[in-house]
């Protein structure tokens, strides 16, 4: 009731209802535009979005899993597995076939995650952590421990470097992903069921909802988003790397949290994830422009993420006021 976004009644009708993270995005943009040279140039902004698009697409998947009350740790390792599978499949299957093989690998990981969580009621934390190790280990075994270069070709680099109507493909893919996520969450039956299942699985079951199907579909779709991100990532690095994106799951969780999505399930909107992704993308970009040492980059990013989360979940803390325990609204009066 007091938190800026999380507890506000979400509207499924699609009316404009900006989350608090919008202000973080605007504030950060203004600060960087003034303080960081070249930040606001068109070229840099395009670059920022292109780099951030991979995180954005994967974060769309993470959003679904978080709404379901779960969490997805296997994204990075499954992207690495996808890159290795893609490059290994290239000689026989061609570029499109290679990407399809890589994407299938990610979808399989999603399927296993979903099956274990939905059908066997295992905790998502452990399942996806386990699959992180399985996918990462699998990638290392397949690659023989070393990165494998992909033979350079225009077709192979198109997902990462191509343009359609002058706009980079990754940015288009991210825009499409967010549009799809919004459609799924706000306007489809499947999305509505994710909210219900995530908010209270028992109540969902007793309402006559086939909970396992909803959960499985959620993890599969999350895998699909991750597969798209993996294709672009593989194309960008032009190689199969067993250690490709170790931080991806954590960055996607951070993006959702910065956007104000509680990890408790049942809540979250596409626009919140978008805001969180933009915050992290701007930070990553700014520390590169400022040429900070890598260690400082991480510290600064960590500080901003924690600050943004604090700002959303406990605004009083930032003003150094004591936080009051949330009042139980058991006696409501109007």
């Amino acid at each position: 009731m007091m938190a800026l976004t999380g507890a506000r009644p979400r509207r499924f009708s699609g009316r404009l209802n900006p989350p608090a993270a919008v202000w973080v995005v605007l504030l950060l943009f203004c600060v960087f535009a003034l303080a960081v040279p070249r930040f606001a140039s068109a070229g840099n902004l395009e670059n920022l979005l292109r780099v951030g698009s991979i995180l954005g697409i994967a974060a769309c998947g993470q959003t679904i899993v978080l709404i379901l009350g779960g969490i997805e740790f296997s994204f990075g390792a499954s992207a690495a597995l996808a890159s290795v599978v893609t490059v290994l499949a290239l000689p026989s299957a061609g570029v499109a076939g290679g990407f399809a093989a890589g994407a299938t690998a990610v979808l399989l990981v999603g399927l296993v995650n979903g099956t274990l969580v939905a059908r066997f009621s295992l905790p998502p934390f452990l399942v996806t952590l386990g699959m992180l190790m399985v996918a990462g280990g699998g990638a290392a075994v397949l690659a023989g421990g070393l990165p494998i270069d992909a033979p350079p070709s225009d077709a192979f680099s198109w997902p990462a470097r191509g343009r359609v109507a002058g706009i980079p493909v990754p940015i288009l893919a991210a825009a499409a992903s967010f549009a799809l996520l919004h459609l799924l969450l706000a306007h489809t039956r499947a999305g509505r069921l994710w909210y219900l299942v995530g908010a209270n699985g028992t109540a969902a079951r007793l309402s006559g909802i086939t909970v396992w199907r909803s959960v499985l579909a959620g993890y599969l779709l999350a895998g699909a988003f991750c597969a798209l991100a993996a294709v672009i990532l593989t194309s960008r690095v032009a190689s199969g790397q067993p250690g490709l994106a170790p931080n991806l799951p954590f960055e996607t969780i951070a993006a959702c949290a910065v956007g104000g999505i509680p990890l408790a399930g049942g809540q979250g909107r596409a626009v919140q994830t978008l805001c969180g992704v933009l915050v992290i993308a701007m930070l990553n970009n700014a520390v590169v422009l400022l040429n900070l040492p890598v260690a400082y980059q991480q510290l600064m990013i960590a500080a901003v993420i924690l600050g943004a989360v604090l700002l959303q979940q406990a605004p009083r803390l930032l003003l150094l006021l004591p936080v009051r325990p949330a009042r139980q609204p058991e006696e409501e009066r109007s």
Partner: peptide
């Protein structure tokens, strides 16, 4: 424990 979707709107609770 078994009925309400606490964070969701009243309407969505009624329509589940």
């Amino acid at each position: 424990a078994e009925g309400l979707f606490g964070p969701l709107a009243a309407l969505q609770n009624a329509s589940s």
